[in-house]
C-alpha cells in the first residue's frame, strides 16, 4: 500500500492535500491527452499505411500516373496533382482578395468601417465547407458556364474559386494583424518624407509585415490542400492527371470521401489506401505548417 495516510503530516507541506494532488495529476493527464491525439494520428496513418505499402510499392505509389483502385492501379500523382492545382487556383483568388482587403482595412478604412467589415469577412472563414461546395455546384459553376461554354459540371476552377473564398479571410485577417503591428512611427516617418499613402502601404508597411503576410499565405495553402467537401462536390470524383483547371479532377481528400461513402471493408486494400493517401496529406500539410512557423520565427522583426 502506498503510505497515503502518513501520520507525520509532512505530506501536506509537500504540496497540498492528497485530493488536490490527485486533481493536479488529472489536469496533467488531460494535457497529455493532446499528445496522445498526435501519437494516435501518426500511429494510425503509418500503421494502416504500412500495410498498404506492403502491397503497393512506394515507387509505384509516387511515380504511377494512374489512380484506378478497381484495377489495382495506385499511382498517387493524379490525386496529389489535383490537390495542388486546386490549392493554386485558390491562392490565385485568395492572395489578391486577402491582401487587398488587409491593406484596405489596415491602411485606408476608417476605424468604424473596419469594425464592421472584419467580422463580416470572418463569417466566410467560419462557413461550413459543405455550404461552399453547394455554392460552387449550384451557383459558381453555372455562372462560369455562361462565360466558358462547354465547361463541365465538375471542374477544378469552380472548386478552386470557392476554396479561395474560404481561405481569403485567413490571409486577410493574419496579414492585417501583422500590418497593424507595424508601429505607427514607421508610417509617420514615411509620411513625413513626403510619401503618399500608397507608397507608405506598399513600400513601408507591407515589407515590414512581410513575414506575417507570407506565413498567412503558406497557412492558407495548407488549409486549401486539406479542404474536402467543396472539392469533393465541385471538382468531381474522377482521378485525372491534368493541369487544365476546366477539367474535373479528384483530390486526395475527395478520394478519401469517395471510399468512405461506400462500404470498403476493413482490411481491404481500398480501405488501407485512404490511410496511405491520408498519411501523404498529413505530411504535406504538416510540412507546410512547419515552413510557415519557420518563416515567422526567422524573419520576424519585433517592434517595441
Amino acid at each position: 500500500m502506498t503510505p497515503v495516510g502518513d501520520p507525520s503530516g509532512r505530506r501536506k507541506r509537500l504540496g497540498g492535500s492528497v485530493g488536490e494532488r490527485a486533481m493536479l495529476l488529472a489536469l496533467a493527464a488531460a494535457a497529455i491527452i493532446s499528445i496522445l491525439v498526435t501519437v494516435g494520428i501518426v500511429v494510425v496513418l503509418v500503421g494502416e499505411g504500412a500495410t498498404f505499402f506492403t502491397e503497393v510499392p512506394l515507387k509505384e505509389f509516387f511515380t504511377g500516373t494512374e489512380w484506378f483502385p478497381v484495377e489495382g492501379k495506385y499511382g498517387v500523382l493524379p490525386l496529389l496533382n489535383a490537390s495542388i492545382v486546386i490549392a493554386l487556383i485558390a491562392a490565385v483568388v485568395a492572395v489578391p482578395l486577402g491582401l487587398g482587403s488587409a491593406i484596405y482595412l489596415s491602411e485606408y478604412a476608417p476605424e468604424r468601417l473596419r469594425r464592421v467589415v472584419k467580422p463580416v469577412l470572418e463569417v466566410l472563414a467560419g462557413m461550413p465547407t459543405i455550404v461552399l461546395g453547394f455554392f460552387a455546384l449550384d451557383a459558381v459553376t453555372p455562372a462560369l458556364q455562361t462565360v466558358i461554354p462547354g465547361l463541365g459540371l465538375y471542374n477544378a476552377l469552380a472548386a478552386g474559386i470557392v476554396v479561395g473564398l474560404l481561405i481569403t479571410p485567413l490571409i486577410s485577417s493574419l496579414s492585417e494583424d501583422s500590418m497593424r503591428a507595424v508601429p505607427n512611427a514607421m508610417r509617420e516617418g514615411a509620411f513625413g518624407l513626403g510619401a503618399t499613402r500608397r507608397v507608405v502601404s506598399l513600400k513601408v508597411v507591407v515589407p515590414a509585415a512581410l513575414s506575417g503576410i507570407v506565413a498567412s499565405i503558406v497557412l492558407a495553402l495548407s488549409r486549401a490542400i486539406g479542404e474536402t467537401m467543396a472539392v469533393t462536390l465541385a471538382a468531381g470524383t474522377v482521378p485525372n492527371l491534368s493541369w487544365n483547371p476546366l477539367e474535373g479532377m479528384q483530390t486526395i481528400t475527395a478520394y478519401i470521401v469517395q471510399v468512405s461513402k461506400g462500404e470498403a471493408s476493413r482490411g481491404s486494400l481500398q480501405y488501407e489506401s485512404i490511410f496511405a493517401v491520408g498519411l501523404l496529406l498529413f505530411v504535406v500539410t504538416l510540412a507546410i505548417n512547419i515552413i510557415a512557423v519557420r518563416i515567422v520565427r526567422k524573419y520576424r522583426t519585433v517592434y517595441q
Binding site: A31, I32, S34, I35, V37, T38, G40, I41, V44, L45, G47, E48, L219, S222, R223, I225, G226, E227, T228, T253, I256, V257, S260, I274, F275, G278, L281, F282, T285, L286, N289
Partner: peptide
Amino acid sequence: VDVNISNLAAVPSIIYGLLGLAI
C-alpha cells in the same frame, strides 16, 4: 504539448475522420 496543440489545430479535419475510423 504547446507545439503539438498548435500543430493539431492545423491538421485537416478529414485526418481526424481517419483517426476516428481506425480507433
